[in-house]
Design a protein around this nucleic acid. Structure first.
Lengths: 213, 213, 213, 213
DNA sequence: AATGAATGAGACTTCATTCAT
DNA sequence: TATGAATGAAGTCTCATTCAT
């Protein structure tokens, strides 16, 4: 009935939930879950506070939905990796996670903090575990194929996973202005994949190795 | 020599700040900084809410004091490391951090979350940077001595630091029941130091390497 | 034309700020600024405590808004004075101020007390100074026209201003039951204007008596 | 039993109440009654908070005692006036009050604010009324002796009293940095006594009168 | 479906007063 | 008598949630 077409994003109620989620993510990334207010989320989404509650029953529900979508995004990251060598695979994986961390700062911090809430914790656990399992399965396959030293595959996966998580958090903190981070995701990814595969120790007989694969 | 041990909270006023800090750490670890209430901290410390403010000017000040004491504890961890080989040094460092994470679950998460508060962020930054610098200095010395492959020392330190931070978080999440963590700190530490030093790649000529140093 | 007059506090949101200000004035006048609680102001306005903060960011802001509206009311009082003789003008000014004091008891006391807060003090200062300047300008004009004895115009204005302020406070205190005040504003106004213009000294012959010093 | 004579003001318990009152007055003058804290009063008096309660049962009792001592001081001001002419008497009275206001800034504001407390109000009322009555008696005597115009003596006293109160408040506000006040108490006193006695109106036949004595 | 004013529980913090030492 | 740590009621302000329009 209104004859103005000036608001482009205001005539697609079907997109409302996604818009709200995107806005909520931005606000969570700015303030963290607890300090984010529904008022700010609504403003960021360009709707009123009441509208939020037409699509999500509570602030917590928004976070749960966000966890789902984030987990989905991570899973796609892993599935998209197609590499001939293990080193490349690892580098791609690291790079994917680091890029995500740059584009969605504070996401991990938000999620971790959310762990304090038991219900959210269970939800998040389910999501992550599934992703972890995919990764671990790939690792075990490679390990079994003899491409890796006879190291406990759990240790190997833990080493990689921890390194990535630590890096990710480093990047997120950098996004809040907390730390410096001069290298690009790709650079870091290759360097770390190299370290992980070949180790730090100098090997006299191997001369001239740089951190180019 | 004093004849009263009946009042639990009436001991020595000189211990009050430490008691409050310990209580606050427990509550922060249970709930995170934002969700922790001064009422709960006071109850956990066995004092009234007002007493908190006889020792700390604000809730935030309690967290700042906690950061200081945590940073001090970490610095001592690093200073206590005396090892003949780099691998041992790394293993000890990892083990120290993992033990701390087990004894003070969620501390890191709490601190990270607190970064959202700019003032706390600055404080924490100062603390961490100092510790980081110690570690990096040791690393550079070793790197210069030729014990390491000619890898960017920044990358090396980042690899180690990230791995440790990631592991730490993993352990903390495990403490909240979020994840399994079957190995002991020492086992993990040695295995990871091995990976870090020697890499994951199988080396035909090196046979029989286990993850025993 | 709307068919509901049953909910007393649900009228027009546009009137809410004025309603809150009126309620706050009543409460401030009962208790003074410091002792007035937001709970009591909200109750007096017939709204919840939170609603206060939908319209004013703080208790102090309510007082600032009240100062503005009071200052505006005073300025109008002065502008409305149209008199042929100086004596009439003074009498009207006094009467206007006294009537205000009767209708808004304790307002001046509240404002003065509020001076203890530096920010409020600055705000109030700006308001009052402007009003004072209007008054002083009129006085100087009269003085320059020769209608007054060659008295320091600052002294004259100070005499009038102080007398009015003192009277006002007397009336306000009377309103709290502190003092008696049998005469009407107009009676007092005329009597004082007379004293101010002609002095207290008896002049039997009403001519040229020199005054001892 | 202690052999140190270093604290000079610490060995006269009999002076303690007066010391506390003096400290309380200074603090009240800085902050007003409500914002003054017992902690600050104790610190200003150089004693502990608990000691306050060995001499006064409550914060309010300190204010009551202060009112008594202030009223006594005012009464002495009035009794000390010995002047041959009414104008001198008035000038001395005004000067005495203005000096008091300069030396004890905010006292009047504190007292006025205290009126909001009914018990304090009654107490203050009794004190002030007695002083007022002295003043009014003198005024009536002079009026009856024919020294004043046949003006309602109530009006005359009200004019004088209000003027003084207004001036006093002006001076107190100036002490808080609120307003300018360039003249000395004596100058103001003489000028105002002149205005009050002789009026503002120009009298052609009286030439050359200035407000210089 | 959308709005945003209203709500009220609850957070952090202050401070007059008490009391064991 | 002097102390000052402890107390807890009460104050200001925030914010997730509801609901009349």
């Amino acid at each position: 009935m209104s004859h103005e077409e000036s608001q482009p994003a205001r005539r697609r109620p079907a997109q409302r939930p996604a818009e709200i989620l995107a806005a909520a993510e931005r606000v969570f990334n700015r303030c963290g879950y607890d300090r984010a207010t529904t008022r700010e989320i609504a403003a960021e989404a360009g709707v009123s506070e009441g509208t939020l509650y037409n699509y999500f029953p509570s602030k917590r529900a928004i976070l749960l939905a966000l966890i789902d979508s984030t987990a989905e995004s991570w899973r796609q990251d892993i599935e998209c990796i197609h590499a001939s060598t293990l080193e490349d695979a690892i580098a791609q994986l690291i790079a994917a996670r680091l890029r995500f961390a740059q584009e969605h700062p504070l996401t991990i911090l938000t999620l971790q903090q959310a762990v304090l809430d038991p219900e959210i914790g269970r939800h998040l656990d389910a999501m992550v575990t599934r992703g972890q399992d995919d990764l671990m399965a790939r690792f075990r396959a490679l390990s079994a194929s003899g491409a890796l030293r006879p190291i406990d595959p759990f240790v190997a996966e833990e080493a990689l996973g921890s390194m990535i998580m630590g890096l990710t958090i480093g990047i997120e903190l950098a996004a809040v202005g907390w730390h410096r981070q001069p290298l690009s995701p790709e650079e870091i990814a290759h360097a770390l994949a190299d370290v992980l595969m070949n180790g730090l120790r100098a090997r006299p007989e191997e001369k001239g190795t740089s951190h180019e694969s």
